[in-house]
Design a binder for these strands. Structure first.
Length: 474
RNA sequence: GCGGCUAUAGUUCAAUGGUAGAACACUGGUUUGUGGUACCAGUCACCUGGGUUCAAUUCCCAGUAGCCGCCCCA
């Protein structure tokens, strides 16, 4: 849709421009460069999207909350390049994962294969290693808010350029750090009024997982004739994915399947239990999901995903059924990247996806979105007032007042309509007469009562009125 | 990457084998310097290419894009 709309806009613009070109070029007799034939218009590329000013409040709500949480929980902001060596992800995410095999934007470069980063954890770990952060006080806690790229087939909430906010704790092997990350991500949504649920599981260490995988495959092999086609493929290729199957015929088999928790060592198991204990104490609602096995190779122990907590009715909302975020522990990744064993855990949240749900939600619910509201509106009439208005607007800005205005409308009616839309309690009106007299009108938007005051006193008076207004509202 | 559905104004939707209409939004007016309601007017659209046809926005095919399911994931 966006593509077409953008195209149409361009065409509309072209129409307006066309007559001018004709006039200009008619005398020379040369054919117009723009001509009558449609000129190629540009559209946003597939799977990409513009973030328009209208959506900004949702992005800002999320960003502000992320930054506030990061500050409170003491995560330092890190920003890594969009471009990385392709090998970084091949080694960290693992060959055979869809992200690496099918979805990376890879380019040949004189220095070898480079790519647009498909995720945030590997670059952060790379930066950790490069900067020798072992020498920092441990653990090192970092957060990021960055665009990511994956060449996947687009869908609602699934873009080729998307944004993630992520939190990583490197250098701590402590169930409390797992719980802290879950708490931060949970609050990220909860604070702005979006209800979410946490699904959690533990996938232990690689050798435990391998043993389980064998066991799971053995179990499924005995039921092979009852499986759906897709599951038969999974059985050969990636047995863990059998747990993702949504086919009805496979459900009973899935329900009876061995669960990974039972194949974990005592140490792994008690680590997981401890994480759950912390979550209980924090009051973070979670559900154990034995079928949750995340796709990236680097995960160990705790894995979790965050889903919007939707009612049956809301599940039909566009793109609302997928995970908003996910993460887990990756104790072996730093060693894989550097040879130095360092435990770590992290979480990544899909911002575009969250914004989509937030938008759908905002229509029904009262969300804690930042107020872009103005304190007052400044209406002006006539050329002389316009010049004075700019000056006064600047003075009011310096005094900390948020002022709505439109210098390019001359009708007072229109300007007061705008003031009304902004729901400001007071409007200032500056016309020719007021400019001459050095005064300005303060209009009470509710009662319509107006008073004429000296321009020099307007700032103090309006502040006094606003204070009084706020008290009355409370 | 696979399967399906869809494509008309800024948005949400209509109608139509003879080039299109509403609501909301936007601009202006009724009110030559006064909003919240009302009324009036105006601007803006048939995704692209090919085929069938006297004639295609409409039917057919392809492309493209979006959405849904799968895959995967944020």
């Amino acid at each position: 849709m966006l593509k077409n709309k953008t195209k149409q806009k361009f065409q509309a613009v072209k129409k307006n421009v066309a007559p001018k070109n004709k006039k200009k070029e008619a005398p020379s007799g040369k054919p117009s460069a723009t001509g009558d034939k449609a000129k190629k218009s540009f559209s946003v590329m597939r799977g990409m999207h513009d973030i328009l000013p209208r959506e900004e409040k949702y992005w800002r709500a999320l960003y502000n909350n992320s930054a506030a949480l990061a500050e409170h929980f003491q995560f330092g902001r890190i920003s890594t390049p969009v471009l990385e060596e392709a090998g970084l992800f091949v080694r960290s995410l693992g060959k055979g994962t869809d992200v690496v095999d099918k979805e990376m934007y890879v380019f040949d470069h004189a220095d070898g294969k480079v790519c647009l980063r498909p995720e945030g954890t590997a670059p952060v770990v790379r930066a950790f290693v490069n900067a020798g952060m072992w020498n920092y006080p441990q653990p090192v806690k970092m957060w990021y808010w960055e665009p990511m790229f994956r060449h996947d087939r687009p869908q609602a909430g699934r873009y080729r350029e998307f944004h993630q906010v992520g939190f990583e704790t490197i250098g701590a092997l402590d169930p409390a750090s797992d719980a802290e990350l879950i708490l931060v991500s949970y609050n990220l949504f909860k604070d702005i009024g979006l209800p979410v649920e946490v699904r959690i599981n533990s996938i232990g260490l690689p050798d435990e997982r391998e043993r389980y995988k064998t066991e799971l495959a053995n179990y499924y092999r005995t039921k092979k004739s009852y499986l759906c086609e897709e599951c038969r493929k999974r059985l050969l290729k990636n047995p863990l994915r059998l747990l993702d199957c949504k086919e009805d015929q496979c459900q009973p088999i899935k329900d009876e399947a061995p669960q990974i928790v039972d194949w974990l060592s005592e140490t792994s198991k008690s680590y997981f239990m401890k994480v759950l204990e912390y979550l209980d104490e924090l009051g973070v609602p979670y559900s154990l999901d034995p079928t949750l096995v995340r796709g990236l190779d680097y995960y160990t122990h705790t894995v979790f995903e965050i889903y919007p907590a939707l009612t049956e009715e809301e599940k039909n909302l566009e793109g609302a059924q997928s995970a908003l975020g996910g993460g887990g522990r990756y104790d072996l990744l730093v060693e894989e990247m550097s040879g130095r064993s360092t435990p770590a855990a992290g979480v990544a949240i899909g911002i575009d996806r969250t914004v989509a749900v937030l938008k759908a939600y905002a229509e029904k619910q009262n969300l804690n979105l930042p107020k872009t509201q103005c304190d007052i509106y400044f209406a002006q009439l006539g050329d002389r007032a316009k010049g004075r208005t700019l000056k006064m607007l600047d003075d009011l800005r310096k005094s900390g007042l948020k002022v709505g205005f439109n210098l390019y409308k001359s009708s007072l009616k229109t300007q007061l309509e705008a003031a009304n839309d902004l729901k400001v309690p007071y409007a200032l009106i500056l016309g020719q007469k007021e400019v001459q007299e050095g005064t300005i009108i303060i209009r009470d938007m509710e009662s319509g009562i107006q008073e004429i005051v000296d321009q020099k006193k307007v700032e103090i008076m309006i502040k006094r009125k606003l204070k009084k207004f706020d008290e009355e509202v409370k």
